[in-house]
């Protein structure tokens, strides 16, 4: 019933990209987003495409898996494309009745769609190659300088890790309670909206009770082991920058330079 849900979209294989420091990967993903916004023409997108495909290849992530991240966005993509296509004023290329397609419209719709696609794909590369736990570790370390202004970086990361840790557990629990109530004749599937909402009560009450129970057990277990927040804690997995991280940064720098230079040399008009 609920056993098809995988947590996040982490693609568990071993690769040079998977082994990169999560901090570096987060920063690289941000750099990539900036890059996507710097691009002004098709050739620039070509550069980014080559980089993304190269990175995906290096990460042993199949193209199909990479593209899966776009699926939930397909309606937004189509909408963006159509809105820009029909509602941009400019030099008309083609018109039928009140519908006009302008050169600028075509240019912008291609531009924005590509931008969206590359934004999603490049951030997907981050989440596909970094486990949620690594991600929250990386976030914590990147945000830790903000502790000076009393920003609760460690606490946030801890909450995120705990939340992530309990998603599968709660899903399993939901499945179990659902089955148990179905065994007592509960019906979660038919009836009108009100009836269906009512039918959720036998599921939600035990689920909340168990979530609170788990939370209190966990808090107790953490206190029993003297957990008291971020001060002076050491870590099991100490993140260290390695050679691979350096190479990755160099590659990204190269891409940024290439994109900037390309944008300067070839003026924006080249897209059409």
């Amino acid at each position: 019933m609920l056993n098809n849900i995988t947590l996040g979209q982490y693609y568990p294989v071993d690769s040079p990209v998977h082994r990169l420091d999560p901090r570096v990967k987060i920063l690289l993903a941000i750099a990539m987003i900036v890059c996507v916004f710097l691009v002004g023409n098709l050739l620039g997108y070509g550069l980014i495409l080559v980089f993304v495909l190269f990175a995906a290849r290096l990460a042993h992530v199949p193209f199909r898996v990479l593209m899966k991240g776009l699926k939930p966005l397909r309606f937004i993509l189509i909408l963006t494309f159509l809105l820009n296509l029909f509602f941009t004023v400019g030099e008309p290329l083609w018109s039928l009745g009140f519908i006009h397609i302008t050169r600028e419209g075509l240019r912008q719709s291609i531009h924005y769609s590509l931008r969206l696609i590359f934004l999603v794909v490049s951030t997907s590369l981050l989440t596909l190659t970094t486990s949620p736990i690594q991600l929250s570790d990386g976030m914590e370390l990147l945000l830790s300088p903000l502790k000076i202004i009393h920003f609760p970086a460690h606490e946030l990361a801890m909450m995120m890790s705990i939340a992530l840790r309990f998603i599968p557990t709660l899903l399993e629990e939901t499945d179990k309670i659902m089955k148990a109530q179905m065994a007592r004749g509960a019906d979660f599937e038919s009836g009108n909206l009100l009836n269906r909402a009512k039918a959720m009560i036998p599921l939600l009450v035990p689920l909340f009770v168990s979530a609170f129970r788990r939370a209190s057990d966990l808090a107790m277990a953490m206190e029993a082991r003297c957990y008291h927040g971020g001060e002076n804690r050491t870590r099991l997995r100490v993140l260290k920058l390695k050679k691979g991280d350096l190479y990755a940064c160099l590659l990204m720098a190269l891409l940024i330079i290439a994109v900037i230079v390309e944008a300067r040399l070839v003026p924006g008009g080249l897209i059409l």
């Binding site: 179990k176 089955k179 148990a180 007592r184 036998p202 009770v209």
Partner: peptide, 17 residues
């Protein structure tokens, strides 16, 4: 069917609501 075959899960007390 579910009326004929009653199923009590493991730790059934967690399904009380």
């Amino acid at each position: 069917l579910r009326q004929k075959v009653g199923l009590v899960f493991q730790y059934p007390e967690y399904q009380l609501f």
